[in-house]
Amino acid sequence: MKKLLSLMLASAMALSMLTGCGGKAGEADGETDMQVSENVKIGIAQFAPHGSLDNCVEGFKQGLAEAGYVEGKNLEIDFQNAQADMANTNQIAQSMVAENVDLICAVATPMAQAAFNAAEGKIPVIYTAVTDPVAAELANEDGSGTGNATGTSDKLAVEAQLEMIRAFQPDAKKIGILYTTSEANSVSAIEEYKSLAGGYGFEIVDSGISQPADIPMAAADLAAKVDCISNLTDNTVVSSLPVLLDAANKANIPVYGSEIEQVKNGCVATEGLDYIALGKQTGAMAARVLQGEDAKTIPYETISEYSLYINSAALQTLGMNCPDDLKDKATEAE
């Protein structure tokens, strides 16, 4: 066992030396003007396999690369996915702390909390896809960190979304929302929808489920009661999006998404998030921390811009059109 260990250590060292050389070569190309002093090793811990979260990680790497930290050159990444298993989240977080990585990027709320707890302030934690960092006790009311952590929130642009739905459907009265009772982000988003809906003349009809198997019945029931459905970033519901779309199509009502990926997959439109962009923004923050800034003092950020994405084919199926005054702003999601 000892021999095996030393062999592995030796090969790991050899590898890091090789990548070290690669890093220098990259700088010689003059691609980067940033001061990237040495090789860094970071951990990326993702809570669950999921399209949006995958995009976050993708964007995060791009953001780091733009700041001069290129995977395989001067950046080593230990990527782990907890498969939505809470026992795994803690062990992954602790193993990254034990490896003494320079920074942990944690994707989604439970993973961020586990990493924050395991790091105990010794290793900076950069989180992303955390809807409400204040409620998760990762940030104070003023945006600064409660500890050695900062990151980005994927808070929905509820107000913009309501405005958009009003523009698409001037006569609609009821918006249906399907959500999972175990997802904290969804519960807080529903609250926000309910408090803002009145201002746009809408009533929110919510339907809570506890597992994917509940979706077919809940979706059919909800679709029959409302004029349209608006999605949250609810992991369970988004994973079963085709079932929801099917139910909505049968009732001949549109489903609005909460991010670009859902619109690509058949929702009519969204005033929403692009998780790649969110990840990029997070990557840029991580680079600042790697260059020596104190994560605690960097306020958490929300996505800087929301954009309107539409799916013309889906609109056509329902006999709907993109309103004229939104046409210039809208981008076709494909």
């Binding site: 939505a84 298993d85 809470m86 026992a87 803690n90 439970p110 909390q113 586990a114 707890n117 998760a136 006790e137 009772t181 175990s182």
Partner: peptide
């Protein structure tokens, strides 16, 4: 130990 409660933390506990 983990300093937060999460409703899904029980999933798969019986297996462990």
């Amino acid at each position: 130990d983990q300093r937060f409660f999460e409703i899904s933390m029980g999933t798969g506990t019986i297996v462990i």
